[in-house]
Simulated assay, not measured.
Amino acid sequence: MQRFIKSLGAVILLSSFSSTADPVSELESLVNQWLQIEQQTNELETHWLEKKATMEQTLTLLDAEQTQLKQFNHNRQKNSSELAEKRTALIQKQGQLEVDESALNTQLNQLIQQLRSLQVQLPPPLFTSWQEIGDLTDENLDANEKLQIALKMLGQLADFQNRISIHEMAITNNQGKEIWVKQLYLGAAQAWFVSNDLSYTGIGFPAELGWQWQFDSELDGEQVAHGIAVQEKKQAANWLTLPVFSYAAKESIQ
Rank of each mutant, 00 (worst) to 15 (best):
I37E: 14
I37H: 11
E38L: 00
Q40R: 07
T41D: 07
T41E: 10
T41P: 00
L44K: 15
L44V: 09
L44E: 13
E45D: 10
H47F: 05
L49D: 09
L49W: 07
L49H: 06
E50R: 06
E50I: 01
K51E: 07
K51L: 11
K51S: 11
K51H: 11
A53M: 11
A53W: 04
A53R: 13
A53E: 12
T54Y: 07
T54D: 12
M55T: 15
M55P: 00
M55I: 15
T58D: 15
T58L: 15
L61H: 04
L61K: 05
L62I: 02
L62K: 05
D63C: 05
D63W: 02
Q66Y: 05
Q68N: 05
L69C: 00
L69H: 01
L69N: 03
L69I: 04
L69S: 01
F72Q: 14
N73H: 07
N75V: 00
N75Y: 03
N75S: 08
N75C: 03
N75W: 03
R76W: 04
R76S: 06
Q77D: 11
K78A: 02
N79P: 00
S80K: 12
S81Q: 09
E82R: 06
A84W: 00
A84N: 05
E85V: 11
K86N: 12
R87E: 07
R87S: 12
R87D: 10
A89L: 15
A89E: 12
L90S: 04
I91M: 08
K93G: 00
K93M: 04
Q94T: 06
Q94R: 05
E98Y: 04
V99N: 09
V99S: 14
E101T: 05
S102C: 02
S102T: 02
S102W: 00
A103S: 13
A103W: 11
L104F: 10
N105L: 11
T106R: 15
T106H: 14
Q107C: 07
L108R: 00
N109K: 14
N109T: 09
N109S: 15
Q110D: 14
Q110T: 09
Q110W: 08
